[in-house]
Design a protein around this nucleic acid. Structure first.
Lengths: 203, 203
DNA sequence: CTAGAATTAGAACAGTGGTTCAAGTTTTGA
DNA sequence: TCAAAACTTGAACCACTGTTCTAATTCTAG
């Protein structure tokens, strides 16, 4: 039976993708060459081409994997019940984890422009779908009066910018854990949506 | 007198830097080669080396210029009087303008890692000084009770992330002007700081 | 055990992009 | 007007990086 070998090969592909994601996160996308990916995945540069057609494809799969994870969490939040504030918080928190977690943290999806024209379309569609879903939560929360009335698109982009940006400044050796960052950050981002009476509390 | 020619040369250097900043913003940093910069600045590739020692130096000056502009605005806000909410809003708004404005918009400063080791230090110092100043406004607003008590560092990074991210999605042909984006965005970001009683307004 | 498939390595190739250079052209100052 | 300085050019150079290729090694199935 060839199922065995195929499964093993599939696992290897995944391992390479994870290694690539690590390398991208550590060195930055443009600074990470095939040789670095090979090094991180423990195989020779030429061997990468047995599993993937090239760097572009590796990048493509990295981005797809991450976007699918993100989409899964927001889909869950859409289906959930409860106040929108809590749902949005969970999405933002998961997003932070998705980028910073030791093992599966990924940042390659932030640079869509690095993909060749032909591959971009699908990724952009997925990314937009995610953004649309988040915006849906924001908009619905506004409609219900739970959030203040503002431009949902703009606010959504602001939130996503803030969480995406964590990849730039987060350092594992820092004082806060990923979980703490995820909590505080999502807290702040959702608080800005609240339609609380703007009472200015002096002193 | 050689003052005349020197002044003209200096102006040319500036024009090149602006052209480079435009190219960086339009094509992305790593996708912008010396040849593109030359094209945008209307001179030959080789000629760039008469004014700058290389691409690294161009990038360095681009980043310095932008950081100095940013620092100037936050310095002003620190010296100003009035509520901290308003001061912070003005800083965030200026930051957005600094990145998106038609003529002087710059984004190269977002990629410090692209600089060679030797040049990084100074830029990082400037960048951190800016961040520190913004954080100072946030922290002081908290101490005065104007803002809710949270981690100033984290919130500051969230705000900067949100404004920096605008460079990724802003399109000049979009429906909103840079000014509108700057206003709405800084509004949202500061609202999240407010220590309003968390009254949940139902329905 | 062995033939064939699957996998791997490492050298060589090719395009790209930063940089250099020698030789021109324009500008300046006397 | 003329020589020196300032400026400009375009081709050539070179290191780097994605990729290909061939030969070797490992694994699988009968």
């Amino acid at each position: 039976m060839s199922g065995r070998v195929q499964r093993k090969s599939e696992a290897r592909r995944l391992a390479i993708l994870r290694a690539a994601a690590r390398a991208f996160r550590r060195l930055g996308l443009s600074a990470t060459g095939m040789r670095e990916i090979a090094e991180e995945a423990d195989l020779s540069p030429g061997n990468l081409y047995y599993y993937f057609s090239g760097k572009d494809e590796i990048l493509l799969y990295c981005q797809e994997r991450t976007l699918e994870r993100l989409h899964a969490t927001v889909k869950e939040a859409c289906a959930a019940t409860g106040v929108y504030a809590e749902r949005l918080r969970s999405v933002m928190s998961a997003h932070v984890h998705c980028m910073l977690d030791e093992l599966e943290g990924a940042t390659a999806h932030l640079e869509v422009e690095a993909l060749p024209e032909a591959m971009r379309e699908g990724i952009i569609e997925k990314r937009d779908a995610y953004e649309r879903a988040v915006r849906g939560l924001v908009a619905e929360g506004m409609k219900r009066g739970e959030f203040a009335q503002t431009d949902p698109a703009l606010v959504t982009r602001a939130m996503l910018g803030a969480v995406n940006w964590t990849a730039r400044w987060y350092r594992p050796e820092g004082p806060q854990s990923v979980g703490e960052i995820a909590d505080s950050l999502s807290d702040y981002l959702v608080r800005g949506l609240m339609s609380a009476p703007r009472s200015r509390v002096a002193k």
